[in-house]
Simulated scan of single mutants.
Amino acid sequence: MDTIILNKGKDKAAWQLHPWVFSGAIATVEGTPKNGDVVAVVNTNREFIAYGVYNNGSRVAVRLLEWHPDRIPDENWWRLRIQKAVQARAHLFVDGFNTTARLIFAEADFIPGLIADRYGDYISIQVHAAGVEQVKDIVIDELNKLLQPKGIYERSDLKSREHEGLVDTNGLLSGSMPPEFVDIIENGIHYQVNIIEGQKSGFYCDQRENRLLTAQYVKDKKVLDCFCYSGGFTLNALKMGAAAVTSVDSSALAIETLHKNIVRNNFDVTKLTAIQSDVNKQLRAFGEQEEKFDLIILDPPKYAPSRSALDRASRAYKDLNRRGMMLLNSGGLLATFSCSGAMDIDTFKQVLAWAALDAGKEIQFIRQFTQPEDHPVRASFPEGEYLKGLLCRII
């Protein structure tokens, strides 16, 4: 096995079980490992630290897998990791209540570079790293053995693949092609999910618990759901007795899918106003029309993909939330989220405080949201904690 020797003083994170070794931490590469090959990582005294997968074209030059010298990452190792990840989520699938969840969450499950989501009878995967690309056949075979899905579809059209020297790959990997819309159930609500063309891997199952929590506050309320996608928060609000829901998204496919989901669940379509529009533009329009709401949900895309983008993203989050706060009635609620890993919860609170000040409002934080258990956070990899949210009351 080829060996990676780390610079003196640059091995601390690896000893502490952090899964990333950056290229600047490497002193010497012994051998000629190809991208995706398993390598041994040692310190300057040649003491074993871990096994990982190598990529000389990526800033993360080694993604560490295993810290026990006797457990070499061979085919059986990969299969056991997949089994552990899938078995840990087995209790989340309840017939008639929930048929979707994340099965594998990359570094959190010791399988860096792999995302796998279950949507009813189908599985959607995303491969971010060359190491997983090397063992993709093993991954597919093991998922088939464990879950017997009707089909496994790949949605590896990710910017991160470019840094790994990988081209975009979309297509069927095994079984039958998913239909245009796959029927899933989340929180007892049916959704039509487009695995082939939908956002991310088809759906945002990381908001499952937050949708249910937010819906506790909607009865007889006028609700605005921004960046609604296929209606996760909207449908929960209608189920829990909202008086009216206005849903906004820039995607025509999202609005089309939302309408399908309303019909699929036999919800009262007269309570829904669905608008295809840029959210910031629409918030400005609502302000000019002097519209007011009792509860507003802001679930925007990732504004800060890296720490270098945090200042710019903070300004965008502040402006978005300021506009939302100005549309709320006194005593109204704002459920606001950030899926930017670079934005920690304390910074997010500060951004909201600035937004409230600019809006001339005073707010209370009454609930904190996070990602659900199928998106766990490894203690040694805090970067895996990306989703955070706050429920704010206008006072």
Rank of each mutant, 00 (worst) to 15 (best):
N7L: 15
K10V: 10
D11Y: 03
P19L: 05
V21C: 06
S23L: 09
G31L: 07
N35L: 01
V38H: 00
N43Q: 10
N55P: 05
N55Q: 12
A61S: 15
V62I: 10
L64M: 05
L65W: 00
E66Y: 11
W67T: 07
I72H: 07
I72V: 15
P73H: 02
P73W: 02
E75Y: 01
N76R: 13
L80M: 15
K84D: 09
R89I: 09
L92Q: 07
V94M: 08
N98E: 09
N98S: 10
N98P: 03
A101E: 04
L103K: 12
G113Y: 00
L114G: 04
L114M: 11
I115C: 03
I125M: 13
G131K: 12
G131F: 06
G131L: 13
I138L: 06
V139M: 07
D141A: 15
N144P: 04
Q148Y: 14
P149K: 08
I152W: 00
E154I: 08
S156D: 05
S156I: 10
L158W: 11
E162Y: 12
E162S: 15
G165H: 06
G165T: 04
L166G: 05
N170F: 05
L172F: 12
G175S: 05
S176G: 07
N187G: 05
V193Q: 09
I195P: 02
I195E: 00
I195L: 06
I196P: 00
E197P: 03
G198S: 03
K200Q: 14
F203R: 04
D206H: 12
N210E: 06
L212N: 13
V218H: 02
K219F: 09
K221F: 03
S230N: 14
T234P: 02
N236T: 08
G241S: 13
A242W: 02
A244Q: 15
S247N: 03
D249Q: 04
S250D: 03
S251V: 01
I255M: 11
L258H: 06
H259R: 09
V263F: 01
N266Y: 13
D268E: 11
T270C: 01
T270S: 14
K271T: 02
T273S: 11
A274I: 04
A274K: 06
Q276C: 07
G287R: 06
E288M: 09
Q289I: 04
K292R: 15
F293Y: 11
L298F: 05
L298M: 11
P301D: 11
P301N: 11
A304I: 00
P305R: 14
S306F: 07
R307N: 12
S314K: 04
R315D: 15
D319P: 09
N321R: 07
G324M: 13
M325Q: 01
G332N: 03
L333H: 13
T336W: 00
T336D: 03
T336H: 03
G341R: 01
A342W: 01
I345P: 00
A353Y: 00
K361I: 13
E362V: 14
F365E: 10
R367S: 06
F369S: 02
P372V: 02
E373C: 03
P376H: 06
V377L: 06
E383T: 11
G389Y: 04
L390A: 05
R393P: 02
I395K: 15
